[in-house]
Write a protein that binds this DNA or RNA. Structure first.
Lengths: 347, 347
DNA sequence: GCAGCTCATGTAAACGATTACAGAAGTGCT
DNA sequence: AGCACTTCTGTAATCGTTTACATGAGCTGC
């Protein structure tokens, strides 16, 4: 049906071995034969069959990436980091999202065997998927945003420290009633951020805790606003467990005609690219998202080359407090005289 | 090295054929044998080799997706649509971004042969990549956002019509000097949108055209603001060729203490998810982004099943004008009395 | 005139699965 | 007994490559 190396060989009146050698530039070949083979291959539109090739070479030059979901800027940035680094090493990517169904996730992992040389698994769940029973022994894999798992490299973010830093920042600005909009239950990033929030709040004199449920989506932030406005004793600052929810909050407060940061300080977490472009620009905790993907990929390259004996790594990437305007702490800008916003500020 | 079906067969004291049958649930098998094989397979951590399997079955259950770049919300939405539809049909995805280098793009296309059953190629360039010489004859492929290419299904967006609709909307709001922030040169979506802008402007009495270069990135929008403020004769409305640039504009005008929509009306194109959450919510042209991916995938399924004889399709998806607040035309909301924003509005 | 070399090419064995076909064993029926 | 039939299992071909090894031709140098 489709044209194979045999067809090229027959047409060019040589053996398949010669065709293979010529097309891969290995071994010696007569100038004339070479040209003939190239010409025939082009005419027949011959494209080598990847599966067949990687079956014999035991190399796919491909990495697998397993994500919980492809939605949102966070994941797209992670993939971007991975892709950048992978292509630099001449590798392709198989991306699969698993929709947080455990059985499906593990089925996907199995399906990658023989198609990829290594995997990056982004598993935000509290307990990482069972790689051991779904992958051959010593299969190179790196876990992202995950609890450590023996036998595999893991990369984690300092969610705990980042959340603590943000709480201290808000406290230093004079806020005492600081609400926290939680992430989804069972999500490790979410629970670590919450733990950071709680721990920090406990150490601060006069700090009043308030936790509002959420799920990392813009809508959850939007809904949280309503809940907050119903309270008798409203918080003065709201710390969302991620930027998407913070943006939802921003939007909701604007619609309700409240001002940020004057009426409420709002902070996020992640520093997704859009965060600096919203109004007001979002104070947040920067997570080196693309860097995360890049580092994972580098580790994976090491794992693929290093073999089984290699020592596993367990990195925790630092986060960084990014102060913009949504909490009222940015360095004062001089308003253009006579601009409407100036009057507004004087109100 | 890694465990194969032979190892399982040997350990379970049966032939490889039996192991294959049992593990795939095909053909009859003794209860006892079945259990034994399952047990051995689990103990040995046997995972079938994808390449080997798909070599003989001539099925990979995988689609390839070729993107120009993984950056930004647009592409992540497209992939999401594709993924959703593909997984519904039990298919995986190989995603590759090609960084707008033609040679690399075509190398990627070739590399997919034998690894995927079909491809979706998102080629925003003016001239689509040369699929014919890089794919076997009759290889199923769908082109997205592309000029029609014979032999392949193509899906396009009504960029021209959408841009025209936006211009008419702005004109109807009283704007006459309407600037357009262009997309990157050589990009088809960008040039079609520009063509729509120009054509519409030409038909409208008193409309003054102004074109500012751009590249679809937030920064380009940001920079466009500066250029506009330097003009003696400033436009009253600015139509950005995509939402990212519109968001950059929003941010820049806010920093320069101008008001949107009071001082400048700003419109975008795409309706990326974040567009309704920025301040003010962005008036834009909705492109059914995820739907685009979904439709492409459905076509691809058809192409894979339908074979070569199948008639190729050439769809153009409609766009929709989404009126929010960034052009001042939204249905008036009643400001909460006494809210600071109210005073501000009266200024 | 032949060993020894290089160069160009062919032969055939992998790689790890699936599956058509055949064979063996058991059962029921005439 | 013999036959047909079912049920289970094994043998071996196959998918499309790569590559170790063999082969043969042509050359050099003695």
């Amino acid at each position: 049906m489709t044209v194979t190396i045999r067809d090229v060989a027959r047409e060019a009146e040589v053996s398949v071995a010669t065709v293979s050698r010529v097309l891969n530039g290995k071994g010696p070949a007569h100038r004339e034969t070479e040209r003939r083979i190239q010409r025939v291959a082009k005419r027949l539109r011959y494209v080598p069959h990847g599966a067949a090739r990687s079956l014999i070479t035991r190399r796919t030059n491909t990495f697998g990436v397993l994500l919980p979901d492809l939605y949102g800027e966070f994941f797209s940035e992670v993939i971007r980091g991975i892709d950048l680094c992978a292509r630099r090493g001449g590798f392709h990517l198989v991306v699969s999202s698993s929709h947080s169904d455990r059985a499906e996730t593990e089925a996907m992992i199995r399906a990658m065997r023989g198609r990829v040389d290594g995997m990056i698994v982004l598993s935000p769940e509290e307990t990482p998927p069972d790689l051991d029973s779904n992958l051959p022994k010593d299969f190179p894999a790196v876990l992202l945003n995950s609890a450590p798992l023996r036998g595999y490299d893991t990369i984690d973010i300092d969610n705990f420290g980042g959340a603590g830093a943000m709480v201290h920042h808000l406290y230093a600005l004079g806020h005492r009633r600081i609400a926290f909009v939680c992430g989804p239950a069972g999500n490790r990033d979410a629970s670590e951020r919450m733990r950071g929030y709680r721990t920090a709040m406990r150490t601060l004199a006069g700090a009043e805790t308030l936790e509002i449920p959420g799920d990392f989506g813009e809508t959850a932030g939007y809904d949280a606003c309503e809940k907050i406005l119903k309270l008798r004793r409203r918080p003065t600052a709201i710390f969302a467990a991620n930027d998407s929810m913070a943006i939802g909050l921003l939007c909701a407060f604007r619609e309700a005609d409240f001002l940020v940061p004057e009426d409420f300080a709002i902070a996020g977490f992640d520093d997704i690219p859009i965060a600096r472009y919203v109004t007001p620009p979002l104070t947040t905790v920067r997570v080196p998202i693309a860097g995360l993907g890049e580092r994972a990929t580098r580790l994976l390259f090491e794992a693929v080359e290093g073999g089984a004996a290699r020592r596993r790594r367990m990195d925790v990437l630092p986060t960084e407090l990014i102060v913009r305007e949504s909490c009222g702490a940015s360095p004062a800008r001089a308003p253009r005289p006579g601009s409407p916003i100036r009057k507004f500020r004087q109100t």
